[in-house]
């Protein structure tokens, strides 16, 4: 896990908002389609607590010191 609590909360909320805007047809057209697809990304990464981009960049929002890695 490389995401802090606030990071995860923001991702989950943002994902829900994007999905609602897209799938609820509140935002239509190309942007709505983008929301429909992209919305799953922050939702999933927020729920799991792990971001693949963070992992590639060896970045974490969990804390300034220390990392936990599952073996």
């Amino acid at each position: 896990m490389n995401e802090g609590t606030a990071d995860r909360a923001i991702r989950v909320v943002a994902g829900i908002v994007l999905l609602v805007l897209g799938w609820g047809e509140i935002v239509t057209g190309t942007l709505g389609t983008v929301f429909k697809i992209v919305g799953f990304v922050p939702l999933a990464t927020g729920l799991v607590g792990w971001c693949p981009l963070y992992a590639v960049g060896k970045f974490s929002t969990r804390g300034k010191k220390g990392t936990a890695a599952a073996s």
Binding site: R62, G63, K65, G66, T67, A68, A69, A70, S71
Partner: peptide, 12 residues
């Protein structure tokens, strides 16, 4: 199973 490297907060 897992390891923790470096200083972390008491809660973590």
């Amino acid at each position: 199973r897992a390891r923790l490297v470096g200083r972390v907060s008491d809660t973590d």
